[in-house]
């Protein structure tokens, strides 16, 4: 009996709260916050709150076209894989308490890889669409992956190094015990924010889907339900990415209990979303070569500095 109850609870966690349903709602709401803020910063009115929901429903209801030349299996499978992997990643991130739903030593690496899978699916989906625009978009997606992934990994792993653990839950406990140590990781936070922009393919790093150049990049041939899933996956990725940054770099107030903790969690996540929106408003799109140069010449060295700071701190503090 207990066994069945445990499994039912786990299923509820995965599918409803804080799993799939909750994530979809928060992600679509965050998409609205992003669009609204973007509009207001540009002196526009912006969409009503239900617009992302309406867009999603509209796309789901639309006719779906699979290109004749496309590899049918890959074309149809990739959106689901993208969606599944981002939702799974959330289960290992501590959200509003010190403990994530599931944890094991090394889960930080798994989360990072789960967050990489969507990008790989964008590439595969675009590549197997066999259209010129999606293939160029896919190639750019992959190029961009190699540019932002190094700074992102370095900046997320540096705090883990200081905490002497590869588990996000254990990291959360460590920084709760030593809240001041989070101050060591400010540089890493900035680098991770910028790298997250690259991961989410947003301005200034949106050249993989630059509409004025290559239509919609890897997503050019997608329509209907599968496009809706891809878009949802990107929205959820934003929330999961923001949650990851919040868990790693802003590990405050996790012991406040569920209600206050939950509110604080949403505040953190939406603050990060707001920063991402602000950056999107401020800059022009970088060319892919400029993006790679930026990530390798500025992003990676700065992330190395973060790593160095954490190593020195670790030695000096004797942990």
């Amino acid at each position: 009996m207990d066994d069945v109850l445990f499994q039912l609870t786990a299923l509820f966690h995965v599918l409803v709260f804080p799993g799939f349903v909750f994530l979809v709602l928060v992600a679509l709401f965050a998409e609205w916050v992003d669009r609204m803020l973007y509009a207001r910063l540009q002196n526009r009115i912006g969409p009503p709150w239900f617009q992302p929901f309406a867009d999603f429903l509209k796309l789901v209801a639309k006719q779906e076209i699979v290109p004749e030349l496309a590899d049918k299996g890959m074309f149809k499978l990739t959106p689901l894989v993208a969606l599944a992997s981002v939702v799974t990643a959330l289960l290992y991130i501590p959200l509003w308490s010190h403990d994530a739903l599931f944890a094991f030593p090394g889960d930080v690496i798994v989360v990072m890889y789960l967050l990489t899978i969507p990008t790989v699916t964008f590439f595969l989906g675009g590549w197997y669409s066999r259209s010129m625009f999606s293939m160029i978009g896919a190639a750019r997606t992959l190029m961009q992956l190699f540019a932002y992934e190094i700074p992102l990994f370095l900046s997320i792993l540096a705090p883990a190094l200081l905490a002497n653990t590869w588990s996000l839950t254990a990291m959360s406990h460590y920084y709760a015990a030593h809240p001041a140590y989070a101050a060591f990781n400010v540089i890493g936070f900035c680098v991770a924010l910028v790298a997250l922009l690259g991961k989410l393919e947003r301005v200034p790093f949106d050249s993989p889907e630059a509409e004025t150049e290559i239509v919609a990049g890897a997503f050019t041939e997608y329509s209907g339900r599968r496009l809706a899933f891809f878009r949802l996956a990107i929205s959820i990725e934003m929330i999961v990415g923001a949650s990851l940054l919040a868990a790693v770099f802003l590990p405050f107030g996790l012991g406040l209990g569920s209600v206050a903790g939950f509110v604080l969690y949403l505040v953190k996540v939406f603050a990060i979303v707001a920063v991402l929106t602000l950056m999107r408003t401020l800059f022009a799109r970088l060319r892919i070569d400029q993006m790679i140069n930026f990530c390798w010449k500025i992003g990676a060295p700065v992330a190395f500095v973060q790593l160095l700071i954490d190593l020195i701190a670790k030695g000096a503090l004797g942990v």
Partner: peptide, 16 residues
């Protein structure tokens, strides 16, 4: 020009 280089904020401001 702003729109073509992905700088939509400039587009919105100038057109306003």
């Amino acid at each position: 020009a702003g729109h073509e280089v992905g700088f939509d904020t400039l587009l919105m401001y100038t057109w306003r």
